[in-house]
Each structure stands twice: as structure tokens, then as C-alpha cells.
Amino acid sequence: MLVFIIRRLMQAALVVAVMSVLVFVGIYLIGDPLAILVSPEATELDREEIARSLGLDRPVWEQYFTFLTAAVQGDFGKSFVFGQPSLGLILERMPATLELALTATIMAVVIGVPLGLYAGLRHETIGARAIMAGSVLGFSLPNFWVGLMLIMLFAVQFGWLPASGRGQTVEVLGIELSVFTANGWKHIILPAITLGLSKCALIIRLARATAREVMLMDYVKFARAKGLDEKRVIGVHILKNIMVPITTVTGLELGALIAFAVITETIFSWPGMGKLLIDSIIHLDRPVVVAYLIVVVLLLVAINLIVDILYSVLDPRVRLGGAK
């Protein structure tokens, strides 16, 4: 187990290193920050002066090296726009995004698994067909449209729920979170539904497909032949088997939700990382973009590691030792 984690961390370090080169070169190529930083009226001499002070006159590899030395110490430079350390800006907004993505994922799993299980076990009932039809809808409706419709309905028409912002937050373990206040809940529910709807549809379909496969297995029949009641056959024997693929997919999708919550955050003015990224790209705020991408890569690597460990907990046949 320990060997496995160490090996995975080393792989992660490699991924992050490669990623940092790609990001740095990519950003370097797409535009000149001086054009934004220096006022158009400045003389050529001023421009050179500023370029020198920022180190922009150096060759790429030297700039990259400077960046890297600082980055491993947690310094990704100051935002050109905000004048604050870029990593700080991102970490400040990260809880909002994580909170939103986690809420969306938990909702998707808590709703999706039972519905999918039901649709799989009673696949010929009208209820099961309705669930499957609904899941197709959940899949195909575009995210932004769902968000706008929810706002129209629940915020504008009925006025039950707020349409933007995070609402009241409380500090939990030094992090500002809104899921612990009633007001925060009111704010998070619409964006979380918007973000989680298609994931919920995905989990329904996956749970249904695997449940239909598992319910035909001999061990399910044997469990019944042992005289277990349906609650135990479904809740333990079938559920534990379908949770293996669902965990994998949920983990991957959580990563995607965190990285691409941009649209939902924009619609609901949710002050998360995604919105920051869009603003930074528009303003060519290099340090923030670079820091954002690195942070997201680290998050994805961490999520994958957790999924792999969970996998071995759920399925004893998976050996974390790896290579023989």
C-alpha cells in the first residue's frame, strides 16, 4: 500500500513537471504581457526597462527555470491584475468550487445510485422506463440552459431561491464554507443541480447497466438460496459489486466538475476558481492561469489516487502492490 502510494506520488510529480513545461510554453506563445501591462503611451525605453525588471528579456528556458524555482516554493508570481500572489487568489476561491463540485457529485450519487439500481432490478416497470427516459434528458440538456431555466423558475417566477452568489458562509477549519448555513444551502442548491444533473444521469445509466449484469450472477442466486431477504441481497450483495465501477466514474467526473465548473459558476456568479480562470484568460493574467492549471492538475492527481485506494477497499481482488 505504502509502496503504491509513493509510486503514484512520483508519477504525479512527473505529470506535474511535464504539465508545467506545457503550460509555460503555451502561455509564453500566446501573447505579450507587456502589451497589457505597459500603457500604450510609454516609450520604447520604458518598455525595455519594464521587460528587464520583470525578467521578460531573458531566453525562454531561463524564464522557465526562474519560474520553476519559485513555483516549488509555492510562489507562482503576482497577478498582473490584482497585484496579489496568484496562488493565494486561487486558494482563496478554491473552497467555493470544491464545495460546489462536491455537493453536485454527492447529490448525483445519492440520487443516481438508488434510481439506477431500481431501474436495473425492475427494468420492465413503468417507473424504470420513466427513470431511463429522464436520464436521457439529463444527459442531453445543455448545462447552461438548465441553469438559466432553474433561475427563471425558482428565482424569478417563484422567488424561492436566490440566483447568484454564495450567501452566508461560516468558517470551518479555517475555510469559508456555505453548506453549513441555511442561507448558504439556498444559494448552492441551484448551481449544484445544474452542475450535477448530467452526472446524475450518467450514474443512473451506469448503475442500471451494472445492476442488470450483477443480478444475473450465480452469487446473487446463491445469496437468495441461502435464505437472505431481498434487502440484504440488494443492499449488500448487489450494491457492493456495482459500487466498484461507480466509484471510478464518480472520481473521474469529480475531477472534471472541479476543472470545468466554469460555465455554472459564470451563470450563478459563483465566486469560484472557474470564474477567476475565465477572467484571467481574458486579461492574459499569466501567473494566475499557470497557477490555476497546476493546482487543477494536483487536484486531479489527488482524486485519482483516492479513487484507486477506494477501489482496493471495495474490490479485494484489486491489489495495490502493482508490479510483480
Partner: peptide, 25 residues
């Protein structure tokens, strides 16, 4: 029937590789 199954009438299946649930001890 549930009371009888496993208690009074038991069954052993053909393929031992498939009759035990792989994820339970």
C-alpha cells in the same frame, strides 16, 4: 419460502468460482 431456503432446503451450485460473492469475505 425465504425461511425454508438455506435453512431446510439448501442448494449447491455448479460453478464454485461464481457462487461466492467476490467482494465479500
Amino acid at each position: 419460502m425465504r425461511q425454508l431456503r438455506g435453512a431446510r432446503i439448501a442448494m449447491i451450485f455448479q460453478d464454485p468460482m461464481m457462487t461466492l460473492n467476490p467482494v465479500l469475505r
